[in-house]
Amino acid sequence: MSERKAALVTGSTSGIGLAVATAFAKAGMDVTLNGLGDAGEIESIRSVLEREAGVTVRYDGANLMQAEACTGMVESAIGAFGRLDVLVNNAGIQFVSPIEDFPVEKWNAIIALNLSASFHTIRAAMRGMKERRYGRIINIASAHAHVASPFKSAYVAAKHGVLGLTKTVALEGAMFNVRCNAISPGYVFTTLVEGQIPDTMKARGLTRDQVINDVLLAAQPTKEFVKVEQIAGVALFLTSPAADEINGAALNVDGGWTAA
């Protein structure tokens, strides 16, 4: 078994999760990827990252909507690497609708993936972390863990729940050198967001700059997107000795959105 730290990052085949997994691997951690996508593309991501970072990178396609799959993924990662040192819960989905029209199945799906999956993975990882007296758990929350927006009842509820879960786990792990923190991003620039800009320009009759500043970044005072690499940098910091006394915190990376 490798003596390197072992990390598991959910929702890590693209976006924030992939940036975090990449940062971890380049810092010398063995990594388990998880997420959706084309099988060939995922294998390419895995193999390139493994080769470039010089660590072991594996992929687990567990369906995080299912409790048993969450548990099995954690157990598989521990079996592969001998332990799990770092767990990042990042996977999530979104749906926007007035609450009176919000489909019940969408509510259930968002709560299952954005909140319950984090509970299941932490539950599966916690005992081993306590026994080894080391663990770093990072939950990717959101500015919506602190403030609400209309039409996002399930997402806001889930992210508020993630923050409560983070604080509770932080207290339970404190005496065992298990730290649990959250990162609360604002609007993050991803290919998914970029793809929405032309449609919004057409639908609202706005310029690209107007869409970015007046629609997407309306709540973000810096009028700048958060970069996935910035979130990854904060996650890597939370695994460093400098962050050993940060526990139960939510690090806001939102350009000042939640400062108001």
Rank of each mutant, 00 (worst) to 15 (best):
D38H: 08
V228L: 08
V162C: 11
L49R: 02
L18I: 02
S142K: 09
E131I: 13
L115E: 10
V178C: 10
T166Y: 07
T168C: 09
L36N: 14
S149K: 13
V169S: 06
K159P: 01
F102A: 01
L84T: 00
I137D: 00
V104G: 08
T22C: 04
I42Q: 03
G17K: 01
Q94H: 14
N181T: 13
R123N: 10
V86D: 00
A235P: 06
F95Q: 05
G205R: 07
I246V: 15
G195R: 12
A39E: 14
C180W: 01
N34D: 10
A243K: 11
T13M: 08
K152V: 15
T56I: 14
V31Q: 06
F189I: 09
A112N: 11
A148K: 15
V193R: 10
G256H: 08
T71M: 14
M1F: 08
R136V: 05
V147T: 14
N34H: 04
I122N: 00
G256R: 11
A53V: 09
A219Q: 12
L171A: 10
P198V: 11
R208G: 05
S14Y: 06
H144V: 09
R83P: 10
R204S: 04
H160F: 11
D38C: 14
T200N: 00
S97N: 08
F237V: 02
N114W: 05
V147G: 01
M29I: 00
R127N: 12
Y59S: 04
V169A: 07
A260E: 11
G248L: 05
M65G: 15
G205I: 14
A80Y: 12
E229P: 03
A109I: 08
G195S: 11
F225L: 06
L64P: 08
T191P: 15
E224H: 11
T56D: 13
V104F: 12
A170M: 02
K223M: 10
T56M: 15
G28Y: 06
P98I: 05
K152P: 03
E41S: 12
A250G: 09
V96L: 04
V55D: 05
E100L: 13
M201Y: 02
N108Y: 09
A112P: 09
N90G: 00
N108K: 07
E194D: 15
S76H: 05
A53L: 08
Y134F: 14
E41R: 14
S76R: 13
G61Q: 07
A259M: 15
T190F: 02
L8W: 01
Y155S: 11
A109C: 08
A25D: 05
D30W: 00
S153L: 10
N252R: 13
A7P: 03
F176N: 12
A235S: 15
G255W: 01
V20T: 01
S118R: 02
N63W: 02
N247G: 12
I93G: 15
G161T: 07
T71R: 13
V215A: 05
E245S: 07
A249G: 04
N108Q: 15
E172S: 11
